[in-house]
Design a protein around this nucleic acid. Structure first.
Lengths: 244, 244
DNA sequence: GTCTATAGGCGGATAGAC
DNA sequence: GTCTATCCGCCTATAGAC
């Protein structure tokens, strides 16, 4: 409680932040698999053993970076949502999608850390689960609101998928029609697929750089339709049930 | 021409194959970023310098693995196609999709190598481009055949995307309607997104293990619809849009 | 083509002084 | 909390003998 203790804690927080910042730079340079405490320490002008006072092991540092990344993209999604309070659900949907893509383009290595190949030998602890679901929750919020009023007609699910869709709904999206929950999970995976292709180079020689934003937006829009969000004929217009 | 020379070349091919096999095991154990000639050599009972007679550098070994992986998944896709010669396009589509997923589940580390995060510091040479497009070409073949007869009705593209869709069509899918080409590129990215989520652990605590095959199949089917393949009311039934 | 040897690095993690 | 020192491992790549 003393100011001395406060200063110490403040210093600790600052050094921890500096370590994570440098670690993110190392992540960009060498990748998560080769992230090393030694390199971070060297770059920071510290000695490697000093870092162990802040992170008990390399994997703990990695976990901190993963949580930060999930929180960062989650915050971006939530901000996009908050900035469109009261807008038509479809517009809010595409805003969240675009926010995620923008974040990914701005933080490609952190994106790869959370949505790319798993780091061999590393297994994420339970602490990452909460932050990992923030973007999904933002999308769920959009859909929940859209379905609070007049329910939207989405084709029924094949019978064999109904039990699982109902289980998922109960588990993390209560209130949504089960077919919407199932469609959302798929849409989210597909969205990340589009972003990964762009970021990981699979669109090289396929989609022109300058067209990728347009291409993504178009597909985010198609996915909105897939999860049952009505097509507006104009911005802010919620339209009726018809296809565009 | 002599048998001696033939034997030597055969030996060389066999050793090369053994190196790549062991490298694939190392890939599974340590990941692409940490693939090392030394570890491969050690595991093979060779000395590291000997490997340099087969692969001039670590990156060249990596390139060979990447090409092999693309060829492997490409061959799986082509086999699925060949096994369904004469079937309805939609069935052929889902067969290719399922074949890619099956291959990915059977070769998760090779999948991560080609569709996961790029390896930092490594840049793929031109040689990978051909093999990389085999799966895409298989899907194009399905669509080309489906559109050879009566064109399928797919909603027109927003005007702003038309030039790019036409460029893509000309470049690698001549004969397809441009909106189909655009839809295919997106569908392929989305398909990989679904597989990556499954393989990279994003479906943990979301989609139950036992339900993932069904879930994937359902979504591959939805994607078939997105690229303009007619929905059959039953298996093998092409519906009313086309006779082949 | 394979070997030994070597150069010149890198890493995680810990012990013990200050 | 930071330092030095240390243990023990790892790596790419080359030179030169056989």
């Amino acid at each position: 409680m003393s100011t001395v203790r406060g200063a110490r804690e403040r210093a600790r927080i600052e050094v921890t932040a500096a370590i994570k910042d440098e670690a993110r730079r190392r992540l960009a340079a060498e990748g998560a698999a080769k992230l090393s405490l030694r390199a971070v320490a060297r770059e920071l002008g510290m000695v490697s053993s000093a870092l162990y006072r802040y992170f008990p092991s390399r994997d703990d540092l990695l976990t901190a970076l993963i949580i930060d990344a999930y929180d960062s993209v989650g915050a971006a999604a939530e901000a996009a949502l908050a900035g469109r309070a009261g807008a038509a659900p479809r517009e809010r949907w595409t805003a969240v999608c675009a926010a995620v893509r923008d974040w990914a383009l701005a933080h490609p290595h952190e994106y790869a850390l959370i949505y790319g190949s798993p780091v061999p030998g590393y297994s994420a602890p339970q602490d990452t689960v909460g932050p990992a679901s923030r973007v999904g929750n933002a999308l769920i919020a959009v859909l929940r609101e859209a379905h609070a009023g007049p329910g939207l007609a989405l084709p029924p699910l094949p019978a064999e998928l109904c039990p699982e869709a109902e289980r998922m709904t109960e588990e993390f999206a209560p209130g949504l029609p089960p077919q919407v929950t199932a469609a959302l999970v798929a849409a989210w995976a597909q969205l990340v697929g589009l972003i990964s292709f762009e970021l990981f180079g699979q669109f090289q020689r396929v989609v022109e750089d300058t067209e990728r934003a347009r291409f993504f937006r178009h597909n985010a829009d198609r996915l909105a339709h897939e999860v049952g969000l009505p097509a507006g004929s104009g911005p802010g217009d919620q339209g009726n049930l018809g296809r565009r």
